[in-house]
Design a protein around this nucleic acid. Sequence first.
DNA 1: ACGACCATGTAACATGTTACATGATTAC
DNA 2: GTAATCATGTAACATGTTACATGGTCGT
Lengths: 181, 181
Amino acid sequence: MSLSNALLGFLSYSPMTGYELKKILDDSVNFFWLAQTSQIYRELNNLEKNGCVVSEVLPSTKGPNKRRYSITQNGKDSFSNWLKEANTDEFMRNEFMLWILFSSELGSDELSLQLQIKLREYKKEYEMLMSVKEHLLDYAKLYGNESDNLRWQIVLNRGIHDVSAKISWAEETLSEITGAE
Amino acid sequence: MSLSNALLGFLSYSPMTGYELKKILDDSVNFFWLAQTSQIYRELNNLEKNGCVVSEVLPSTKGPNKRRYSITQNGKDSFSNWLKEANTDEFMRNEFMLWILFSSELGSDELSLQLQIKLREYKKEYEMLMSVKEHLLDYAKLYGNESDNLRWQIVLNRGIHDVSAKISWAEETLSEITGAE
DNA sequence: ACGACCATGTAACATGTTACATGATTAC
DNA sequence: GTAATCATGTAACATGTTACATGGTCGT
């Protein structure tokens, strides 16, 4: 249900194609939600079957035709209901933790190697969030009002808090395991 | 693949029933992995089909029979291979962020209400992690060696870093939105 | 008596992933 | 010329969720 509601949320800003929705997910909410194109197209199909969106084909001289989706009143209502239910699940499945837990047979060199790789990724992620900050302002300007703007900032801030925690964890752990040897 | 590898990891400590595996997941790795019993039984079935585990029925005078699973050499090999691949995905899908992003029509009172609820949950989670700390020591004593022990600590520490970040984010955000009004 | 816990599972459905298929346009 | 981006989708499979079914034991 959540991916469809994310799609409805963005479609409530403006009608969009599946491709555009994919892009918007990728370069804005990417750090807490992602979806394959195949999934997006499937969900859009379902949403159309439920009458939450309607689509129209835009013929194109250059390249393939586009199918643009718009949210319907039905879709707005169902989105509103989802909002009212205040769904706040934030569960994470973290394979890296699983790996760490059982990796003792590989030795601590391998552990610190993986941590170093991760640390680099986390730092990149941090940089990424900073660049998302720029994009977010664009989106806010294009679609949002001031309250939306505030909410984008809050969510982005969460991302920054989370990455910072990961970075300090990785650094602390690295210094602990290299210090212990 | 990851749930099955989690199961293999625990079965490499000691043979267990599906029910016991469910419990061990719930009160140790719960904060970064969870699974329904139905899923665990299904995965155990698959693992048995692949020859990664074998099961035996333990008749019981009180209550239902148990089916106890043991890891096979095949299972150990496949687990080792998974370890060597060093799978380190830590992606999160966070519905709460989605909700925040699109919740402006509900007003900022609703936002701060939800944040307060979350903050209480985060603090409970923090307490929980501290109690997991105790359990972890038990598990380490029962099954693990010293390197396992270190790894349990590292993973737990990650949990603590993550929750602390959530707590400070929620507190900061709450004071920002209540201060802004 | 009643709820919590022990213990196993099936079935249906929802969601997410991977691989494939097609073909034009743009930038270097 | 070749890689990236635009643009749409299908099919098969893997994983996760929810609801149901069964029935005993233990503590209060």
